[in-house]
Design a protein around this nucleic acid. Sequence first.
DNA 1: TTGTAGGCGTTATCAG
DNA 2: CTGATAACGCCTACAA
Lengths: 361, 361
Amino acid sequence: MAVTIDDVAREAGVSISTVSHVINGTRFVAEATKERVLAAIERLRYEPSSVARSLKRDKSQAIGLLITDISNPFFTSLVRGVEDVASRAGYSVILCNTDEDPDKELSYLRVLRRKRVDGILLAPTGTRQPYLDALVESGFPVVCIDRPSPGRPCDAVLVENVAGARAAVEHLIGLGHRRVGVISGLAPVGTSGERLEGYRQALRAHGLVEDPRLVREGNSRLDGGYRRMLELLDLPTPPTAVFTTNNLMTLGALAALQARGVRVPDDLAIVGFDDFEWAIVLRPRLTTVAQPTYEIGETAARLLLERIEKRSDDPPRRVLLPTRLLVRESCGAGGQPDEQELEDVFGRAVARPSDLEPAAR
Amino acid sequence: MAVTIDDVAREAGVSISTVSHVINGTRFVAEATKERVLAAIERLRYEPSSVARSLKRDKSQAIGLLITDISNPFFTSLVRGVEDVASRAGYSVILCNTDEDPDKELSYLRVLRRKRVDGILLAPTGTRQPYLDALVESGFPVVCIDRPSPGRPCDAVLVENVAGARAAVEHLIGLGHRRVGVISGLAPVGTSGERLEGYRQALRAHGLVEDPRLVREGNSRLDGGYRRMLELLDLPTPPTAVFTTNNLMTLGALAALQARGVRVPDDLAIVGFDDFEWAIVLRPRLTTVAQPTYEIGETAARLLLERIEKRSDDPPRRVLLPTRLLVRESCGAGGQPDEQELEDVFGRAVARPSDLEPAAR
DNA sequence: TTGTAGGCGTTATCAG
DNA sequence: CTGATAACGCCTACAA
């Protein structure tokens, strides 16, 4: 593993600067020389060291990506968006899972700074992080995703949480529900509060008073949704509809309903925040507030690369992406029929089974 | 961003070697000096450059992770396993999605070598990759995950695909099915062939002859499962049971069944390879061959770190992890009841709703 | 058209 | 107990 530019230079009978210039195309080199150099590179299986290059250029061609947990489908898709634009632009992505733990967040931020990543993309844990503030303050490229920075403002790519949540709850109210419960996420996380706010706005807009017993704070994970839903069901007067504010809690809540034999939507209507690809196979199909997860990742990565490459000191930008209410059966009001949605997802296979892609055998 | 060890040395009134030794705890430093140095570091917000360190030590404290696609739940969980053990050991993880494309694979391998990662974890695309062979040949730490290397053998963490698939199909046969179809994955990918082999072994073991029309090769993605299932349904004599060889195709197949109004398991029984956490909310619940996805990641990362740190030239090791057949309703033979499984997943909340974790409000 | 040499920020080997 | 200083592998001004 120790073949260096010197080895190549020796092998090709030229100086190291020539080799360097051949590699980087940074000055004219005679065709013949160039070929000898390339041949030597080939022969020695030489790969220039990005480490040395980074040291010299003060640029690592790598970005850090801090998210809560890659297992959450929301982040999974977002990460893919980030990776796609980063790699296309020649950047590597260093993945870090914080689990909403400010200590982990801090330690990863440190590691990333030591590694001299060119920029950082993060879904900040709710707690204020002085280290992060200092980083942003110093002009280091940082873009927040999914949630705004709890400290010093920086670029952020967010979705319209309040409006999305409000639309979801208003839809339920429009269907006649008067006792609408909510299972919200962890309080310190910005999005939880916003979605809860959307819920409240919807109630207020329709002259309903909030019943505190119908408002439950879950842990944003499967079991949180499960537990809180059981609690709601155990109330003397349970809600007739429930809004869950993230995908994992929605699934947990559904599990609870199934465990108790509660029928959806007849006994209880449900709408969740954040759609996921395979929700299509759930029955009844789930009504959700869909977030453009992949696009969030793409957009954030693009913003970050811009900052990195322009070193611009523009004021913090904030991109707000819209959500989309996908009305399906779980809320009691059927949306488009199955066939239509399947067609959307898989193409015209359903509509015209005759012209299927030919079988492999 | 440019505070270096020299700045710290100057600020503390010591030499750079002393600073270095304080940071690394690599030789004794008088308590007083040490404190001055630490204070200076604090004051200047100094973070030592891993880039320079890597250059000097010829060690990057980073590993590359090449997978097909982070959006596939199988890899999602695996990645988390890798990240957990890597970060605990002080390594960063560089994530790369190959999409089963050998060209992407090659280009990522190059990038990773240039970045001088200390080792590589990869789910190799099926095609032979001379570059990879050379890497392994040279003794560079490489561990394959999910599939064995198509070229020069190296460490690998795999699951018992043949046995798992065979068990799944034998279970169906045991339930009386005689026309069992299979939707297998892309041919060049090793696991597809093994699972297909398991299917064949099961048929043979029970004296059934293979009907080629019941064997379909999908693309390992949602739409592949969807399309192939439609084809199977359109046969003059459709199968009475189907085995799908990966999670995404299983979901696609389910979507197809729902689109056609085929009832599971009454009209058609189904068993899929690869369980996923939220399968618990599907109705009927899905019978699956569960792989220990997280453990695969953990184990592979551990093997890799071992190779990296011992620089051992042991012969390639191959770890085979067992699968587990989770019998649920979709195959027609109910397994344990809902409550039991929910309890397994969420703890005793179901069993004794009285001692629920207290509500947040 | 090509070569020489200084320096990027560390670590580690010598001295002292 | 602490300091100089020579690498590590590359890029790039400056020379030729």
